[in-house]
Computed example of a mutant assay.
Amino acid sequence: MASTSSLLPQSKARLGYWLLALVALAVLAGAVYLFVGTLVTGLFLYYAVRPANRRIRSVIGSDGWAAIVTLVLVVLPLLALVGYVAFLGVQSLDALLNQSVRNLVAPYVDVGEIRSLSDIASDPEELLDRLRQSGLQGVIDWIFGAVGLLANAVVHVFLMTAVVFYLLRDDRRLAAWYRDAVGDGSPAHVLGQHVDRDISSVYFSNILFMSSIAVLSALGYSVFNLVAPASMRIPLPIVLGVLTGVASIVPLVVGKLVYVPIAVYLFGAALQNPNDLLVYPIAFTVCAFLFLDFIPLTFLLPVMAGRTLHSGLMIFAYVGGTLVFGWYGLFLGPLVLVVTLRVSQDLVPDLIRGSPVALGSDAPSPSPGERGGAAADSSDDVPSAVSRSDDTSDAD
């Protein structure tokens, strides 16, 4: 073991290099902190679309063009859908946010600012009347505010898209650099393999499960509105369907955060006129529990995910991550959990015993979902970004 004195800088020049490195790391950490939500969301999208990118790459044969095609066909339509749903939600904010929901989202979202956007989106003519009454200075202030808000959104979306693109294009180069830096088969290399495999499984299974629940929910809510009387219809079925899919990211909770309040709303509407109307909320509750909760959680999620992480820990990661970090904790929480578990399982036991750290040279075998090729990268034809060991000369 190296002595403590050998680890310290032995010359002024070397001390200067250490200080320069620390300053660079501090600047980098500050930049990452400012955009941590955008960067973490970009990382989530990368792992979510990586299996599709690997399939496209095997056909096109070019890392750069495969990344572009993946962005155009998968990432941008997904972001456009999220933006459209967000616009519909903002446009009809009062139909979605009662006081209890406002109190719930207040720590993470500026409800007052969104309320202003809701007024603009729902009644542009009223906005024009307000601007005419406020005079030239009011118009200028509003224009600068609107441009600033739009520019901020564009910057974050651009940065998020850039993160996804460069990770898709250069992941094999990054894997080769990391492997060369820490040594092929070293404990750090194998630990990176394990973390990459677990994160890929968690993130990709999440996006697949969320998408499935969102589609089922939107279709189910829309069909319910077709058969239910006007007084029993669900407001904004598409928006609430997407929100149900987003809520399903939390294990065991699935869509209860959305369809239970909808059921309460329907029962309240039915009790005002109980003549033959209670059958609708009862049927909705039963169908929602079966097709948006019990069946997906029992049969669909195990096939898609093949997870090895404890569901209780995953709930803590999602809920606790959101409470600690804010909205992006939904993506950062699982990442922190996976890294913590891997370090505690792979490194801590040997460190406590005082024995040399020795990890297996191979990444863990694919889970059942990965073997099927539908839920995550298979180690045969879609290797993970960290475990890739072939030549990277074809990267653009």
Rank of each mutant, 00 (worst) to 15 (best):
A153Y: 15
P51K: 08
A288C: 04
L15N: 00
R132N: 15
G42Q: 03
V253G: 00
L88S: 04
L341A: 04
G360C: 05
S361Y: 01
L278R: 10
L81P: 01
D350I: 03
I213K: 04
L71F: 05
A24V: 14
A395F: 05
A358N: 11
L96F: 11
P281T: 04
Q10I: 08
P383W: 05
P9W: 06
L243R: 08
V260M: 14
L81A: 04
V239Y: 05
G326I: 12
A374R: 03
A151V: 15
F224L: 05
F144G: 09
A363G: 07
P302S: 02
L240T: 15
G61E: 09
I140A: 14
I68W: 10
L22A: 13
L128R: 15
D350S: 14
T392M: 06
R173G: 14
H156V: 13
R115L: 13
N98Y: 09
G112R: 15
V49N: 04
V279C: 02
L301T: 00
D198S: 12
P237T: 03
V260Y: 14
T4E: 11
G369L: 01
I120H: 10
I262L: 13
L337H: 10
V339L: 13
Q99F: 05
S3W: 05
G183Y: 12
K256L: 15
L252W: 00
G360R: 08
S186Y: 11
Y17L: 07
E125D: 15
Q91D: 02
S116A: 15
L290N: 06
L219R: 06
M314S: 09
L300Y: 01
A80S: 06
D170C: 06
I352C: 10
G373Q: 08
Q91K: 14
E370V: 01
V32Q: 06
P77Q: 08
L20E: 02
A2R: 05
A317R: 11
A21W: 08
R54Y: 12
R197H: 11
G64L: 10
R388Q: 01
L43M: 10
I315C: 04
I68M: 09
